[in-house]
Design a binder for these strands. Structure first.
Lengths: 251, 251
DNA sequence: CTAAAGCCTCCCCTAAGAGGAGAGTCAACA
DNA sequence: TGTTGACTCTCCTCTTAGGGGAGGCTTTAG
């Protein structure tokens, strides 16, 4: 089944002009050109168009989109990357919304907001992305974990400690999603194992130390964002679990 | 206090070029021009800039923004309008995210999605906004509820206390998603308000009591499930926040 | 066989800045 | 006091992602 420009346009809410444009710049080539010179698109092209639109939604320039699609022919990889980016965008909106509400509130009270808070959430997104990746650098160094990759995980080329940390984080996230209580025996087991591992690898850490550390994560932007980026609420869940373990340990 | 272009730029993450541009088209005039021709901005201009940025975030063309700000000098009205629009935008992202996940899933299974579903969520936003507002008209009429506010909640048939609780929970969830720290001033404010409300309605509750109560939620299946059902991680976040408030209160 | 609807190319236009040249200004330090 | 480095100004051209529309084929439906 082949689609004409009008049909594609109706399906995708993209104008015909845009299709022309994408053709001209080589971003989306028609499957076939009819005798009369009509552009005809197939399913594959529709899929590619979808990918393009995901990126466009995130305000990527078209030539960047082209490169991205070219250098990563794996559909699955593109999609999970886009999911991450969309989540980041949602986060941005969330933050802006918060600023807006704060503005409404202080406006109502007739107060002045300070000039910094007025613009929270508007940092340019690339700066954000960079901050995100810098942060990852830092964490990779500090923790030896690359968190961006947390989801599918390239286990084999991580070293043992990094792999353990990543697996640990993953399991914590999973437990939270599964609704496991923070004080559940299984969680305690999980934390204990992690502690044991750390102790065996040159990081002397008691349950109390670990609890303190996780409490610190709640205050620290880098760590908080990293944990919450993997799973919303995870930082708090982890802190609660660690505290519960430390309390047990104590008596 | 007056700010130079550089200072405004740093505060707001807007380039100097953009400030020049906004000056030229009369969207944001400097409060004052120095002898040497330097642009100087005051607090009022910063606020106006904030409003502009909210609209810009929503991809409004600059001349439209100008008109909007001109014809509605009431700050409060502008802000609540913008809140609605941002909520709509969040919804759009949510929908696109859903489409994306669906694509990932069917991709994994090696299935083809139908060509319609491929593009759900990409309808042009104005059409979207219109649809949204029509729908709202309808709902407002039929149900006497303005649905754009707070997704779940039939406010009118809840009593006051239930409504307060629901709103409170909603805001907590929102803050968690926004990455607000559990010990942030805003969170404390939120909890304090909630406590005040409870105290005014016959539930004597101190900050410490509340902390204990939220800690109990973590152990109790019913409450845990209810909270986690609304937003993963929320129970733990709330407990951390309550504890932080109680600690504050104590000293 | 004719009209309406669809398609093509080609050309010019626009919005929201970015980049950079050339020149004046400000603060701080020697 | 002079100088240097960071800021600022205006003016000009350039870019991106299309939109509008003219002029001219093609396809479909009656």
């Amino acid at each position: 089944m082949l689609y004409t420009v009008k049909e594609v346009s109706n399906l995708s809410n993209v104008t015909i002009k845009t299709l022309h444009h994408y053709h001209r710049i080589g971003l989306l080539m028609p499957r076939e050109i009819s005798e009369a010179g009509y552009r005809l698109y197939g399913m594959e092209e529709l899929e590619r168009l979808q990918h393009i639109l995901f990126y466009r939604e995130l305000d990527f320039p078209l030539d960047t989109i082209k490169e991205l699609l070219e250098e990563e022919p794996e559909k699955a990889a593109i999609l999970t990357q886009q999911e991450k980016l969309l989540l980041a965008r949602r986060q941005r909106i969330e933050t802006i919304l918060l600023t807006l509400r704060k503005t409404i509130a202080s406006n109502k009270k007739g107060e002045q907001m300070n000039s910094q808070d007025l613009f929270k959430g508007f940092e340019s997104e690339d700066a954000w992305k960079e901050a995100m990746s810098e942060q990852n650098q830092y964490l990779k160094q500090a923790y030896n974990v690359d968190i961006v990759e947390a989801a599918p995980m390239d286990v084999q080329d991580m070293n043992e400690q990094a792999a353990e940390a990543a697996r640990f984080m993953n399991e914590v996230a999973q437990s939270l999603r599964a609704g496991l209580k923070h004080s559940d025996e299984q969680m305690k087991q999980l934390l204990s194992n992690h502690l044991m591992f750390m102790n065996e690898h040159g990081h002397q850490t008691s349950a109390a130390d670990f609890a303190a550390q996780t409490r610190f994560f709640l205050q620290d932007d880098f760590h908080l964002r990293m944990l919450e980026g993997q799973q919303t609420g995870m930082a708090y869940y982890l802190a609660a679990a660690a505290e519960s373990l430390a309390a047990d340990d104590n008596q």
